[in-house]
Design a protein around this nucleic acid. Structure first.
Lengths: 220, 220
DNA sequence: TCTCCTTTGTTGAATATTCAACAGACTTGT
DNA sequence: ACAAGTCTGTTGAATATTCAACAAAGGAGA
């Protein structure tokens, strides 16, 4: 249980809140902890949600699947990150994504109505939690905004360069690892895997970058 | 000034707050009102922002422009809607979009730090405002999510069908007007205008839909 | 009503992507 | 070390998109 608290204290949602405060809050918020095996559905598209999830331990993917079964990876989730806040915060909205574990995972579910309800006497830190949630949503918003920037590019090459530039900016370095396999990157950028590989080959031939598997080096 | 208040009271951000309460709050929040002519830049990419904007009157577009000047319309803003909340709520982030008026517009700027600072004695409704902001960000998040769904489609046809389905769902009706010209829709979906028109022609020939200008009717 | 100007539709050539199939590289478990 | 399975790179044919140029339709103002 202490180990859980460590991950939670370092999550964006609970930043600025101490372990002692957290312990009291979780009870007040009626938090529920659930364990999932590898490749399990944490949430399924179509479900109405009134709780957000926090990945305490493990790894998961946010996946969107269309009518014909084409998969599109929207993001990957690691320990300390939360998911489904958007749907939980927008009342009356059904989930339109699947959340699937990549490894055995522990998830903490928090009911958003509980978070928003004022109970100043019991939990002075509700206010802080709300502000964290706000900044978390803003962060997700920026993430989606960035993805739209990549998807808005017309060609596979332009999408790749847009994505790799963003990764380099994020790492603050021209050499970095990406968190996707080729197939996952192709899904993320919504292009054909073979075309992606071919384009990477061209970019290497032109001297714009080097790579091996998921390790990349961008060159001037 | 009363007319301003009417639009604000019916905005998502100030919903549940009365005119009297609003009047007091605007002073406390140090709200600043600015008027813009048609085709003017309300905000420019690269600017650091600590305030969100509310369009009190008029109409504006959120536009992203890449290095080579290709424009991508991310959304359109009408009276009562707010913009730049994301950047204002995520500290230390520079704006990566332009906000441009489509018509003469009045904008109210609200400093987010002011909103988040607790001042329970002066403004009991700060809490409500924060919750509205949260739900607003969640709503924007869903909007971007939807756009990603469209952009994630591989072909112009699939993007169109995805977009038109979403519009029909939004209107709750198979017959509706879209808020974009052909060029704007092509920018929004990130495809070629002429290809878009051609695809619309094919869809009509196949009997999937009817349209005239920006009026559409989806057929079974 | 008649221009002028903007928006939308159409076409064919050039370019890019998808699809399918396979070969080689890497991993994992025995 | 070996085998089996997965991931990545390569190729050519089929399909789709972009580009450029022009034609047609719609709208605004005289």
């Amino acid at each position: 249980m202490k180990k859980d608290f460590f991950a939670l204290c370092h999550s964006r949602l609970f930043s600025g809140i101490t372990e002692e405060e957290l312990e009291g809050m979780l009870g007040c918020l009626q938090a529920k902890s659930v364990r999932f095996p590898k490749d399990a559905y944490i949430l399924r598209a179509g479900e109405p949600v009134d709780s957000l999830g926090i990945l305490v331990f493990g790894s998961a993917l946010i996946i969107q699947e269309d009518f014909w079964g084409n998969r599109n990876i929207l993001s990957s989730i690691s320990a300390g990150q939360s998911f489904a806040e958007t749907f939980a915060c927008a009342p009356g909205t059904a989930l339109n994504v699947d959340v699937v574990t990549q490894a055995p995972s522990d998830v903490l579910f928090l009911n958003v109505r509980r978070i928003l309800e004022l109970c100043p006497s019991a939990c002075a830190y509700h206010s802080r939690l709300i502000r964290n949630l706000l900044s978390d949503l803003a962060g997700k918003n920026l993430y989606f905004n960035e993805k739209i920037t990549h998807l808005g590019q017309r060609t596979t090459r332009a999408k790749l360069l847009s994505y790799l530039s963003a990764e380099a900016r994020r790492h603050g370095c021209a050499e970095f690892d990406i968190p996707f396999s080729r197939q996952q990157l192709a899904d993320y950028l919504s292009v054909e895997r073979s075309g992606l590989s071919a384009e990477l080959g061209k970019l290497r031939a032109e001297g714009l970058l080097e790579f091996h598997r998921n390790h990349f080096l961008l060159k001037t």
